[in-house]
């Protein structure tokens, strides 16, 4: 019996050391102020980059994590159809909000890279780079150099990008978005809201473009027609 308890103790120590080693070898050094949460959070009144027309009757807000593989699948597989069928047709405006998950070492850093690109008007190009070349998220290695090459491919001026990343200029904005997500009960990524209402709470799979089309059509069918703009009224008179 004593031999058994000795075996339990030895096994516990070996497994404990193993788990500790697994957690310790989690990748490279997290770079600069852009990679971690900021000590304070300030609302800079920014509410995310958006695609589509300002007058679109439906606004979809997507809380995403750039290191999340499901977000990458959604961005690369479903989003092109959604852009073509819903955003470009004026039905839907799509707003991106950051929700970096704690389990991802570089998701804040990636969100920051996208924001720094956004400061130069290249958010969507950087967003596509980060999701189209998502292998970086599987390696656990420091992606600083890779992100610079993505930024370059996205048409970003690297000098301004480097300064932005070094100072962590948008760390507070990203944390504010994450806290906002927590307040509206984001429980994973991606999570979607249509005109403020959480979507697909009972859907047991990743939503498809058809699911968003059904949501948009339903909202449009149940909303009163918007009064025409001044320009449209003048057009009707002639």
């Amino acid at each position: 019996m004593n031999r058994f308890y000795a075996m339990v103790a030895v096994l516990a120590v070996v497994l404990g050391v193993g788990v500790f080693a697994l957690l310790r070898t989690g990748g490279g050094t997290a770079p600069a102020a852009a990679a971690g949460p900021p000590p304070t959070v300030v609302d800079d009144s920014f509410r995310g980059y958006s695609l589509g027309q300002g007058r679109a009757p439906v606004e979809i807000v997507e809380y995403l994590d750039f290191e999340c593989p499901v977000c990458a699948s959604f961005a690369t597989i479903q989003m092109p159809t959604i852009k073509e069928q819903l955003i470009n047709t004026g039905k839907v405006r799509w707003r991106y909000r950051d929700f970096p998950l704690a389990i991802h070492k570089y998701s804040r850093f990636a969100a920051h890279a996208a924001q720094c690109a956004g400061a130069q008007g290249r958010f969507f190009e950087m967003h596509d780079q980060l999701f189209n070349h998502h292998q970086w998220a599987q390696t656990g290695k420091d992606p600083s150099d890779l992100f610079r090459s993505f930024a370059q491919a996205a048409g970003v001026d690297l000098k301004a990008y480097d300064a932005c990343m070094q100072t962590g200029r948008y760390a507070q904005r990203i944390e504010f978005s994450r806290q906002e997500g927590e307040q509206v009960l984001v429980d994973g990524t991606p999570t979607f809201y249509a005109n403020g209402k959480k979507l697909f709470t009972n859907l047991r799979r990743l939503p498809s473009s058809d699911d968003f089309k059904a949501v948009a059509d339903s909202i449009i069918a149940h909303s009163p027609p918007k009064p025409p703009t001044q320009q449209e009224r003048e057009h009707l008179r002639h």
Binding site: L22, L23, T25, G27, A102, I103, K105, A137, G140
Partner: peptide, 18 residues
């Protein structure tokens, strides 16, 4: 210990999951 590793990872300890 398997569950412990997954739980600690979910809490943000360590980097990418092995």
């Amino acid at each position: 210990f398997v569950a412990l590793y997954l739980w600690l990872h979910a809490l943000g300890f360590g980097g990418a999951i092995k």
